[in-house]
Design a protein around this nucleic acid. Structure first.
Lengths: 287, 287
DNA sequence: GGCATTTAGTAGTAATTTTACAAAATATTT
DNA sequence: AAATATTTTGTAAAATTACTACTAAATGCC
C-alpha cells in the first residue's frame, strides 16, 4: 500500500537526498515524535546542519515551511504510531506485529469509511426497517459476521436469523416471501452458491441486500449493495480486514435502523440489556 | 468515552469555557483542519478575539503554547478526519452516523493497540503454539468472535473448535486434558457461567487464556489474559467496539502463531486458500 | 454603588522562521 | 588537470510569528 503519509514519503526518498538533507531525515526518522516538538534551530543542531538546510528539506516535501512540515509530520503520527498498512515480516517481535496488525486494520477501516456511499446506506436502512423477516447469510469468516449481525438485529423485535451453510441458506431462500429481507455477506462476491441463493431469494419476492465486492456476480443479483473494498491477499500474514469492514457496516446499519425507529424505541433496547444482568457478577454490563 | 484526544477534550469542556475562549473553540471545531494551518493572528481574527486570548486558550489545554497546540490538534486529526468517538444523535443523516461509527471504531482500536501488553501476547502465542487441542468459548457477540477464531486457527493443522453455548462449553471443559488450550472470550469477564467453566477447564489440566476485561473474575481464573478495555454502555447508539478489539487480537494471535511456526508453514496456508478456488467464479480469492 | 476578581486587550519584546546572498563543494567541460 | 558551471551549504539580516507584562474592561459580590 503506497500511502501519502509523510513519514512513508521520507523513507522512500532517503536515497535521492543529498548529504545534509539525509542527515535531517535521519534525525527525524530516528524519533519523529520528538521532532514535532523541536524548533528548527534544535533540529538543525541535532543534524549538524544549518537552519536553512532544514527549511529547504521541509519544502522539498511539499510543506510551506518548517512549521507546516511539523504539522504534516504530526498528522502522519497520530497518537504516536503511524496508521499505515505495513507488512508483517518474519522476525518481527510481538510488539511489532501487534502494532502492524492494528495499524493495517485501522487503515482499512479508514479507507472503507471514505468509500461508503451514504445514499446506499440510507436505502439499505429503508429496506431493513421495513423487513417482516430478516436473514443473514455468510460462509466461512463471513458466517461469523452473519451471526454477529443476528445478535445486533435481534434487538429490533423482528424475526431475524443467521445461516452459515449453503444448504440451509438455499432452503430459506426458496421459502422466502415478499417482505422478507436477505442480507448476504461475502467478501469476494464470487461464491457460486451464494449467487444462486441470491437469485432464488429474489425470485421468491425477497429483497436481497449484499455486503460484498462491487461489480461482482453477487452484487449483480442484489437489490442493493454496500461495497466492501479491502486489499487482501497481498500478504500471508495480513489480517482479514474485510471482516472488520463488514462488521463496522453491520454496526452502521443497526444504528441506522435504531435512529429510524426513533427515540421511543430506546427503552426497549435497555430492557434487553438489563435482562442479562442476573447472569453476571455485580458491576458488569454489555458483553 | 473520555479520550485523551485533543478535539474530544475541547468538545467536552465547551461549557466550562468563558465567552472568548468559547469563540476560539468554535472556530477550531468548525474546521480543525484549517486551524492547523493558521497563525495565531489569523485564528484570533477569525474568532474576533486577541492573540493572547488564543494563547491562553491553548495553555489551558496543556499545550506549551500555540505552535504546540497546533501539533496536538494535528495529531488528533490524522488523515483529515478526526478519529474520535463522537456520539450518534437522533437526526443524524446516514453520512453522519456512518462516519461517527467508523470513527469510534478506529478510535477504540487505536486505544487498544496502545494498551496491548506485548509480553503477554508473546506468552499467549507460546501457549497457542504448543496446544494439542484448541477450544474457543464465547457467548453472545463474543460467540461470533469465537467462531471467527476457529476459522483462523483451523489453518494451523491442530484440532480447533468453537462453542457458543454454555452446556457444550461446560462439557468440553470437563473433558479437557493437559495440553489442551481453552480461549475464553468475554467483554465483561463477569459472566458467572464462563468463570465456572474456566475453573473446570483448569482443574482438568487445560491452559485457559482469557481475552477479557483485566481484573475481572474471569481474568482471575485464567492462566494468562489479554486485556480488552473498551468503553461501552455510554451510549445506546454506539457500536460494539469490544468485538472489534477481540477480533483484532485474534488476528494478532494467529499472526504470532504463523510467525512462530516459521516460513516453511506458509505453503500450507496457501494450499488451504487454493482449495476454495473451485467453488468460485473466476478471479476471486479469500472470503 | 463601590470593591474585588475575573476576563480580555494593547503594545512592546522575544523567539522563531525565512530570505537574500555568499562561500564551499562538487560536477563538467575543455 | 585547470577553469568554469552547477549544485550544495552556510551566514547574517529581515520578516514573521508568538509571548510577556501591563492596563483596561467586564463581571460578580458585598
Amino acid at each position: 500500500m503506497v500511502s501519502h503519509d509523510l513519514l512513508d514519503r521520507i523513507r522512500h526518498r532517503l536515497d535521492e537526498l543529498n548529504r545534509s538533507e539525509r542527515k535531517v531525515a535521519d534525525v527525524i526518522l530516528a524519533d519523529p515524535g520528538t521532532a514535532t516538538s523541536m524548533s528548527i534551530a534544535s533540529l538543525a543542531h541535532a543534524a549538524s546542519v544549518s537552519e536553512p538546510t532544514v527549511n529547504r528539506f521541509c519544502r522539498s516535501f511539499d510543506a510551506k515551511g518548517y512549521p507546516d512540515f511539523k504539522i504534516k509530520l504530526a498528522q502522519s503520527l497520530a497518537g504516536g504510531t503511524p496508521y499505515v498498512s505495513q507488512a508483517v515480516e518474519p522476525g518481527d517481535a510481538a510488539g511489532d506485529y501487534t502494532s502492524k496488525i492494528f495499524g493495517a486494520t485501522i487503515a482499512a477501516l479508514d479507507l472503507a469509511r471514505r468509500e461508503v456511499d451514504s445514499a446506499r446506506v440510507e436505502r439499505v436502512v429503508d429496506y431493513l426497517t421495513q423487513a417482516k423477516q430478516l436473514h443473514f447469510f455468510g460462509l466461512g469468516a463471513s458466517g461469523a459476521v452473519a451471526q454477529d449481525a443476528q445478535h445486533k438485529f435481534f434487538r429490533f423485535n423482528i424475526p431475524v436469523s443467521a445461516y452459515v451453510d449453503v444448504l440451509m441458506q438455499r432452503m430459506v431462500a426458496a421459502s422466502c416471501h415478499t417482505g422478507d429481507v436477505v442480507v448476504i455477506l461475502s467478501y469476494t462476491g464470487r461464491t457460486r452458491e451464494l449467487v444462486d441463493i441470491a437469485q432464488v431469494a429474489r425470485e421468491n419476492g425477497a429483497v436481497v441486500l449484499g455486503i460484498t465486492a462491487p461489480d461482482s456476480p453477487l452484487a449483480d443479483e442484489c437489490t442493493e449493495t454496500l461495497a466492501v473494498t479491502a486489499p487482501e491477499d497481498t500478504d500471508h500474514y495480513m489480517p482479514m480486514t474485510s471482516r472488520m469492514i463488514q462488521l463496522a457496516l453491520i454496526d452502521v446499519l443497526a444504528t441506522g435502523v435504531t435512529l429510524r425507529r426513533g427515540e421511543d424505541f430506546l427503552p426497549h433496547l435497555k430492557k434487553i440489556k438489563d435482562s442479562l444482568k442476573p447472569t453476571r457478577f455485580p458491576a458488569g454490563s454489555g458483553e
